[in-house]
Design a protein around this nucleic acid. Structure first.
Lengths: 275, 275
DNA sequence: AACAATATGTCAACCGGTTGATATAATATA
DNA sequence: TATATTATATCAACCGGTTGACATATTGTT
């Protein structure tokens, strides 16, 4: 502690993410932790899910030089503390401000691939679920790509909000409502695999046959999803690479070096049996 | 930092678990973090998976009063540092030593319920998978219960090792080998849901029909498993309660109060379609 | 042996929030 | 007004690993 006081460095890095009770963020945090440990940092974790206040509290406590840097992937609204402090910060799949480097999967390509998978397998009435629109995140490009591809095939794009912060029960209700609203629906691009799984279950309950009656493509493709639900066709985010880039970028920032402001990493397709 | 130095308390708690890239531990860590945050503690996380050295490194760094307490659920062998230090420690589902309180689900009851589910649905040749035997953990009681119940029905118990630290590919191979070794197998009690999922997939690949040809019961029943693979019948560990108890117990220890040395929390059955 | 060069040892100052002692100001009571 | 009581302000000491200055010891050179 005396060393920390004297040297003004704690060898701590804070991670602020929605929750580790999620296959994608769990894997991401695990990968980040592994690399940070190898680089001599310990990891302070903050799950901010549903709670901008909690995110703000974390920030305030961490900014007062308790950590040497921050990797943020939380899904909350803008928080001014990020702007005022000069703490090194790296964002994952989230736009913070002009100075903060962003690491993201190739969301546009992912959305394009997903939509094309659905169209090429014969779907015409394709819905895309996504999070709240007012949230500035590179993940919005998934929907943009979806809309572009739909338009290029002269198909009408429809988006449907399934908020990331809702609990499973509320999500289930929203998804059931979606089935009511779009009875002709024969394809769904879900913005993450958990939502895709809920869609699948709801569809099965309603008597749909997957993929004959309804084609489903998810997003994330985490380790756990690929073991528990390998039948789901999904866009795989390159979690290891994103973690690698985030850590090296953060360490560069801590050293004071310049880093690229945006790093886009290619996605892959996991071919299940849902298209 | 000066405050920490003067007061000799950091308001930090360390969590040492195998990895958050796992539905059960991810949920557990998320629940622990939530409660620790509410109690005014920040959370230092250490994923020790596969790496007793890493666990030891974490311990050494954390013990030198960098944290006020420790909650440990790592799966590694005995490490002497736990004994030498007087840092408040709580263990989850792991036997540390006589002085360290343990929080665990009712593993024996879980094993009993799982085995009875399999037997009552008609299975006769039931195999139980489990982790390495030389590891002292309350989870071993699951297998004890399995053996006891089998014996009480005059059935022969067989156990098969699927080490927690193996990667999925190695686990798949081990499971395939298990199918070869026990061709008459018609029921499996897997020691965790990820293994149960792998068993299910292997069985399907080999042409088994679940649950007609083979009945499967898992263990853990985390949030994520119940969404991604709700068809799996499994024993649900009371994660919220375990987290609650672990945090209150740790805080009591930090205050210097006495706490019970063992707290066993009841399990529930998640009725899927795999028995 | 005498001096230079190098190695090792010792110790006060530093980091900054907290704390209790001491000093000063404000208010109350006779 | 003088004294007692209470409120507010100021400040040095503390925590302990690190660091560079200075002292002392060791080794090398002529």
């Amino acid at each position: 502690m005396a060393r920390q006081l004297y040297k003004k460095e704690t060898k701590l890095v804070g991670l602020i993410f929605p929750t580790v009770d999620n296959p994608f963020f769990g894997q991401l945090v695990a990968e980040l932790e592994k690399r940070l440990f190898d680089a001599g940092f310990k990891v302070l974790i903050g799950n901010s899910m549903n709670d901008p206040e909690k995110e703000e509290t974390y920030l305030k406590e961490l900014i007062s030089n308790q950590v040497d840097g921050l990797i943020v992937g939380a899904q909350n609204k803008d928080i001014s503390e990020y702007h005022t402090s000069n703490l090194p910060v790296v964002a994952i799949d989230r736009v913070m401000n002009e100075d903060i480097p962003v690491i993201a999967s190739d969301n546009y390509m992912g959305g394009k691939l997903a939509t094309e998978l659905l169209i090429n397998s014969g779907a015409k009435h394709i819905i895309s679920t996504h999070g709240p629109i007012n949230l500035k995140t590179p993940a919005n490009r998934r929907v943009e790509a979806y809309a572009d591809v739909m338009a290029s095939y002269n198909l009408v794009p429809h988006t449907y909000i399934v908020d990331f912060s809702w609990d499973f029960e509320k999500k289930r209700q929203a998804i059931e409502a979606m089935f009511s609203k779009y009875p002709e629906m024969d394809g769904i691009f879900a913005t993450n695999d958990m939502d895709a799984a809920l869609v699948w279950q709801t569809a099965t309950k309603l008597g749909y046959n997957i993929p004959d009656d309804l084609k489903i493509v998810g997003y994330d493709g985490s380790n756990i999803t690929r073991v528990l639900l390998p039948e789901l066709t999904t866009i795989v985010q390159p979690v290891e690479l994103m973690a690698e880039r985030a850590v090296t970028t953060l360490i560069s920032r801590i050293k004071g070096d310049d880093t690229p402001l945006e790093q886009i990493i290619p996605v892959k397709v996991w071919r299940g049996e849902s298209v």
